[in-house]
């Protein structure tokens, strides 16, 4: 007696004899489980025959995996608008800060908040690092930033590229008011867009420049947030308006 699944496969392959086909059809009418299995295998076959979709998936994966080239400055229109924005800021910045009551420090205080601990996916291979990350997050949440830094540095000693550890290390520095140290880490984080903290790093960097009263660089970063349609676009636009 042929195996249940083998019968289904042979039926779909068209290699059953006429008698076997008739028997199979009888079973199919009366056996719900067999019908379920038959439908599944038939759909799998259809999916496999979609050569065009399989190729499209591969092409899209290639495109996604290719590091993004930053072509922003290759577009003359973007250059002109960017230059125009910079000129506007240079021309009007002095009057803004001498005529307005809102100081950069006010803007910083109104917009800065401690970045919350996010959940993250664990993998078996980095159990040790996750233990250190857990400890770092626990200390971060309980405002023991120096302890949190120690654990984050342990994670980074193992993997210098860990963007999550870097980001929270910078956040600790922000909370400890070590603005220069935080700035250096955020500058490192914005170099590579292949991590989820890329846009947040831009935001905190802009806040650092505002806090340091470095309006030119703050405006530069805020405009990048706006033009890049990043997650803090609305806030960046509002700050730019405030500066205006």
């Amino acid at each position: 007696m042929k195996h249940y699944n083998q019968l289904v496969e042979e039926y779909l392959d068209g290699t059953l004899s006429i008698n076997e086909q008739i028997k199979f059809n009888e079973h199919l009418k009366n056996d719900q489980e067999l019908r379920k299995e038959f439908r599944l295998r038939k759909e799998i076959n259809r999916a496999i025959l979609e050569n065009d979709i399989l190729n499209l998936r591969e092409s899209l994966q290639e495109i996604i995996d290719t590091p993004k080239e930053r072509t922003i400055f290759q577009n003359p229109f973007v250059i002109s608008s960017f230059a125009a924005s910079i000129i506007i800021l240079i021309v009007f910045t002095w009057s803004i800060f001498f005529s307005s009551n809102i100081t950069p420090e006010d803007i910083y205080i109104n917009h800065y908040y401690k970045y919350p601990v996010i959940t993250y996916n664990r993998t078996v291979s980095d159990n040790l690092n996750n233990t250190n990350l857990d400890k770092a997050f626990l200390n971060y949440e309980t405002e023991n930033y120096n302890k949190s830094k120690n654990f984050l540095n342990l994670v980074l000693n193992d993997n210098r590229q860990n963007a999550m550890a870097k980001f929270y290390l910078a956040s600790c520095e922000m909370e400890l008011n070590n603005i220069q140290a935080a700035q250096e880490i955020f500058l490192e984080l914005i170099q590579n867009s292949n991590h989820i903290f890329w846009e947040q790093a831009y935001w905190y960097l802009a806040l650092i420049y505002i806090k340091k009263d470095d309006i030119d660089n703050a405006s530069l970063i805020l405009n990048k947030i706006i033009k890049g349609n990043m997650c803090k676009k609305k806030e960046a636009e509002s700050i730019i308006k405030m500066l205006d």
Binding site: F77, S80, S81, A83, A84, I87, I88, V91
Partner: peptide, 16 residues
């Protein structure tokens, strides 16, 4: 000089 700068700013936005 200021008028020239303003002209270029307006020109930039018009281009966009």
């Amino acid at each position: 000089h200021s008028y020239t700068i303003i002209f270029f700013i307006i020109f930039g936005f018009e281009c966009l």
